[in-house]
């Protein structure tokens, strides 16, 4: 028997009595806890004005940051996932997809588009982490393959922004082969002599690291991003030791020679424009 009993069930404050700030007016940095106006945060390329923490934004934000006047033509915007394996874990895969589409307003974990960046033709494919951890299944692989083909045929440099936990388990063998497919398309792009720029953001791991994300003519990374093949937890379990500070960070990769340079998001567009201009594209 409880000592106290609630007289009425549920919250009984009438709606008009509730005091709420309008959603999204303020942004609180998860790193330094500084609160800033969302507008200020967005104007700073979605980075914290205090500590320069790079918020994990998605394709919408990157497209608006990079394409001139936020004008672009999206490629394969309606492509969605099938369920070739009738995969079911705790939830059936199609249900998981549907629920995620409703929740995020995205069709899958990658969007691709072409447009002008500082006046230069460019194809940009950007991953969305909020869609099942940015995992690569058939849709991500196929969209990416077509975006790379578009760049090759139109001789437009290709930028891929990776933010992914790796391959999508629910598509098993199919998702594994997306690593092969995207690499095949990059081999053709490579042969055609069209620049491929890979931007690695927080986090980029697994099958994505082991395929297109590491194959750039230029590998760029956002500051402090976690980048690796195996996840830190798996490595810790394998070697049975704690990992050194900064292990698998963008800076670590730069130090070990796998990244050309680290670029703060505010400077990304300028750097891209300089790069492709120097290559004559």
């Amino acid at each position: 028997m409880a000592w106290f009993n609630r007289e009425k069930k549920g919250i009984v404050t009438p709606t008009e009595m509730k005091r709420e700030a309008p959603d999204g007016l303020w942004y609180k940095c998860p790193e330094c806890k500084t609160v800033t106006l969302s507008k200020t945060h967005a104007d700073n390329a979605y980075c914290c004005p205090n500590c320069n923490y790079h918020t994990k934004v998605g394709s919408m934000q990157y497209f608006s940051l990079l394409f001139d006047n936020d004008e672009f033509t999206e490629l394969d915007a309606d492509m969605i996932s099938g369920d070739p394996l009738e995969f079911k874990d705790t939830k059936a895969y199609p249900d998981r997809i549907k629920a995620t589409i409703v929740k995020t307003g995205l069709k899958d974990a990658l969007r691709s588009a072409h447009g002008l960046v500082g006046g230069h033709k460019m194809v940009i494919a950007c991953m969305d982490f909020e869609f099942i951890g940015g995992s690569m299944g058939s849709v991500v692989g196929e969209k990416l393959a077509r975006a790379i083909d578009y760049g090759r045929i139109n001789r437009a440099p290709v930028l891929v922004i990776a933010r992914s936990g790796g391959a999508r388990m629910m598509e098993a063998g199919y998702s594994l082969m997306q690593m092969a497919k995207t690499s095949a398309k990059l081999a053709l792009l490579d042969k055609a002599g069209v620049p491929y720029i890979s931007l690695l953001t927080d986090p980029t791991t697994g099958g994505v690291t082991a395929s297109f994300a590491m194959l750039g003519d230029f590998n760029l990374a956002e500051p402090k991003s976690l980048i690796g093949f195996a996840g830190p937890r798996v490595i810790r379990e394998t070697i049975g030791k704690d990992l050194p500070e900064g292990f698998q960070s963008a800076e670590f990769l730069l130090e070990h020679g796998f990244v050309d340079f680290i670029v703060p998001r505010q400077e990304l567009k300028d750097k891209l424009v300089s790069l492709v201009a120097m290559l004559g594209f």
């Binding site: 690291t209 082991a210 994300a213 093949f229 195996a230 070990h256």
Partner: peptide
């Protein structure tokens, strides 16, 4: 999935 494997670029080696 080891520490040195990451240092020497496991992802890059497979991707290449």
């Amino acid at each position: 999935p080891g520490l040195e494997a990451e240092e020497r670029g496991q992802g890059e080696a497979i991707a290449r």
